[in-house]
C-alpha cells in the first residue's frame, strides 16, 4: 500500500495511505506534485502542512478515515432528492465526532478543512458554528464565542436602532 507522511505545523508526523490522503483535494495535489518532481516513483511523499497543528490534523485524518468509502455523489442528484450535501454526510458518527469538541476546535477544523479541501467536513463544521448563532440572543452568542463587547457609550443601543429598519415592517 502506497503511503504518505503528513507533518503538522508543530512537527508531528502521520503516516497514512495515499488513497486516504487523496480524499483531500490539497493533499492529492501535493502528492501528485511530489510524484512529478521525484525521479523515484517508489519514494514516499512527505507533506508539511504549516498552518495546521497536530491535534487538528489528527481529527481531519480521523474524519477522512471514517468517510473514505463514501460514494462520490453527483451534487445535482443530492439536490433532486431534497437533501443537501451536509445532511447526506452527517451521520450519527459525525454527530458523536463533533459532540465533545469545544467551539475553538471546531473553528480550527473549519480552517483546516478549507485549507485541505475536504468539503464534507467543511460542511458539517460550518453548520455547527452556524447553529451557535442562529436563533440565539446577543448574550448567548457572546458567551458561546467568549466575546467581550467593545461598544462604548450608546453605540450598542445605536446599532440595535439601526437594525430596526430591516426588521420592522
Amino acid at each position: 500500500m502506497a503511503l504518505v507522511r503528513v507533518i503538522s505545523s508543530d512537527g508531528a508526523a502521520f503516516l497514512v495511505s495515499q488513497r486516504l490522503a487523496k480524499r483531500s483535494g490539497k493533499l492529492k495535489t501535493e502528492i501528485e506534485t511530489f510524484r512529478k518532481s521525484s525521479d523515484n516513483s517508489e519514494a514516499q511523499p512527505e507533506i508539511r502542512i504549516v498552518t495546521i497543528r497536530a491535534e487538528i490534523l489528527r481529527l481531519v485524518l480521523q474524519w477522512l478515515q471514517q468517510h473514505q468509502n463514501d460514494p462520490v455523489l453527483p451534487a445535482n442528484q443530492n439536490e433532486q432528492d431534497g437533501r443537501g450535501d451536509a445532511e447526506m454526510g452527517q451521520s450519527q458518527w459525525d454527530r458523536d465526532f463533533l459532540a465533545p469538541m469545544d467551539l475553538g476546535i471546531v473553528m480550527e477544523l473549519i480552517l483546516a478543512a478549507n485549507h485541505l479541501e475536504v468539503k464534507g467536513l467543511l460542511d458539517i463544521t460550518c453548520k455547527l458554528v452556524e447553529s451557535k448563532i442562529t436563533g440565539r440572543t446577543v448574550d448567548e452568542i457572546r458567551t458561546a464565542f467568549k466575546l467581550k463587547s467593545d461598544f462604548k457609550g450608546n453605540e450598542e443601543e445605536q446599532t440595535r436602532l439601526e437594525n430596526r429598519w430591516c426588521v420592522e415592517n
Binding site: 446577543v138 452568542i141 457572546r142 463587547s149 446599532t159 440595535r160 437594525n163 430591516c166
Partner: peptide, 9 residues
C-alpha cells in the same frame, strides 16, 4: 442572525 452578530461587538 447576521443582525444579531452586528449587535455583539
Amino acid at each position: 442572525s447576521v443582525l444579531r452578530i452586528r449587535e455583539t461587538s
